[in-house]
Design a protein around this nucleic acid. Structure first.
Length: 479
RNA sequence: UCCUUAGUAGCUCAGUUGGUUAGAGCGGCGGACUGUUAAUCCGUAGGUCGUAGGUUCGAGUCCUACCUGAGGAGCCA
């Protein structure tokens, strides 16, 4: 018989009909007369209750239905006598597909800490929380492509392995096939990369932006959605060594168009989650509420779904860096010396505590900060007429901070090369990038959205290692 | 990388100023209960206390180093 998914069966009202379900056992309980098995196959957050009439089954078989075991059940759908579910499956035949030794299976029918589950990340898909996160993650991936497809953007695959070290977005992972025990040397003792696989030093990409610009200056509107790698030794709940980034790049967009797109994009994704991930979000919300019980009232996060809706209600605040500095300088915590890093006028690099104050205390909604001093931003950002600030924009979200970083790009060949000279970026390595400014250069803009940061916000999880299936971080590459 | 903090049964934790056979809850296992809802009740088996040194008559409990986790900072997405 054809297999029916648990989620479909739970929605079904074909009482009395026979179905086959396959999945993994969450719990079994009962007595000599009747047993109840909670079965999940990943199709949704809710389990199907299998009712096992003990008179119909061999006790030895039923004993093998342990937490974690895989089973196949043929049975009749019926209205549930219990109150926890509408329908249940009265088992007619049960087949054990895969046993699971209850003495050794690490997942117990009880609450586990997220830290423990990180140590058994190969099995954590089987928990409610990580099943929900995996489904939400899928929906968000799908929504990203849907959004851009609807708007006529083309998805571009940019390279994972690159030879350019130009963006300076952080430490890079080197890619090599050289034998590290016997490195070939040139006459002056340096490593001879002409012997390496690509004939020159190569790394894993830290951003697809530069290649994205090449595509945008022909295709008009493109986006990338791929893995990026940073070998930065950063050990926080907001950073990964391997993460997924979405980078749209648009010809003929100025900074305001860029901001409008970023805001529309984020709203679209959140709206999509609310409409398509209701069950999972409700579960994640309950989970979060449980977690928050131990905290002081002032430290508690807003209820998840309420928080998501709240972001949709209001336009994001848009302020320039200069205005933000003034707000911060005149803020209570600054005057009372409560910031660890006091704000001292133009040029101060904003710290996490400052961003959090702006978003969570002052504006109480997402904030887009623009026009930063050129000194603290990348070389490719368009210089403003004041010669002092660049057309950068950072979108700041409550709790997670910077979720998007972007800018209008410098389209002038002269200004770009002079900025590169100031920042000691070798022109000869960037000849291909500079060609876009030599031939048919136009105003253009783009931004990068850290996909896992979005996932943090949408799921209400607080550690980024919990919103990607197999997190990569310093000293951590298991599974 | 820096600061703080933690590392005791499968999991979550308690172990008083260093002192006889290291405790609990949950989970597992055995049993009871004619429909349960991480069920309930009774019983039972599991640890030498992150690793390596050291102090001491004696260390889970003090000291040093290292490893690992968590929270925060920097870097950023």
């Amino acid at each position: 018989m054809q297999r029916t998914k648990v989620a479909d069966l739970l929605r079904s009202n074909e009482i009395g009909k026979t179905f086959t379900v396959k999945g993994w056992v969450r719990t079994r309980r009962g007595n000599k007369q009747v047993n109840f098995v909670a079965l999940n196959d990943g199709s949704g957050i809710n389990n199907l209750q299998i009712v096992v009439d003990m008179e119909q089954f061999d006790e030895a078989l039923v004993r093998r239905i342990t937490t974690g075991a895989a089973i196949s059940v043929d049975g009749e759908l019926q209205k549930s006598q219990g109150s926890g579910q509408n329908v249940e499956l009265l088992a007619k035949t049960i087949e054990i597909l895969g046993d699971s030794d209850p003495d050794k299976y690490p997942l117990q029918p009880k609450k586990h800490s997220l830290e423990f589950l990180r140590e058994i990340a190969h099995l954590r898909f089987r928990t409610n929380t990580f099943g929900a996160i995996a489904r939400v993650r899928h929906s968000m991936i799908f929504a990203v492509h849907e959004f851009f497809n609807k708007k006529g953007f083309y998805n571009i695959h940019t390279p994972i392995i690159t030879a350019s070290d130009a963006e300076g977005a952080g430490e890079m992972f080197q890619v090599t096939t050289l034998d590290l025990d016997k490195l070939p040397r040139t006459e002056d003792g340096k490593i001879d990369y002409s012997k390496d696989f690509f004939g020159k030093p190569t790394n894993l990409t830290v951003s697809g932006q530069l290649e994205g610009e090449l595509a945008a200056l022909a295709m008009s509107e493109i986006y990338t959605f791929g893995p990026t790698f940073r070998a930065e030794n950063s050990n926080t709940s907001r950073h990964l060594s391997e993460f997924w980034m979405i980078e749209p790049e648009m010809a003929f967009y100025e900074l305001k168009d860029n901001m409008d797109l970023a805001e529309e994009f984020l709203r679209y994704l959140i709206q999509y989650a609310l409409e398509n991930c209701k069950d999972d979000l409700e579960f994640l919300s309950q989970r979060q509420q449980q977690e928050e019980k131990g905290k002081k009232e002032a430290d508690r996060a807003m209820e998840l779904i309420e928080k998501l809706k709240f972001v949709l209600e209001d336009d994001f605040a848009r302020v320039t860096y200069t205005e933000a500095i003034q707000i911060l300088e005149n803020s209570k915590p600054n005057k009372k010396n409560q910031f660890n890093y006091p704000v001292k006028g133009f040029g101060t690099d904003l710290q996490s505590e400052h961003e959090r104050y702006l978003v969570e205390k002052h504006f109480k909604k997402p904030v887009i900060l623009t026009d930063y001093p050129k000194e603290i931003k990348a070389f490719y950002m368009k210089l403003n007429d004041d010669n002092n600030t660049v057309r950068a924009m950072d979108v700041l979200f409550p709790q997670i901070g910077e979720i998007i970083g972007g800018s209008q790009r410098e389209e002038s060949y002269e200004k770009l090369t002079s900025r590169m000279a100031e920042m000691n970026i070798p022109e000869e390595e960037m000849w291909w990038f500079l060609d876009t400014r030599r031939y048919g250069s136009v105003p253009h803009s783009g931004f990068g959205l850290g996909f896992e940061r979005l996932m943090l916000f949408v799921t209400g999880m607080t550690n980024i290692r919990d919103v990607i299936p197999f997190p990569r971080a310093p000293k951590s590459a298991e599974f």
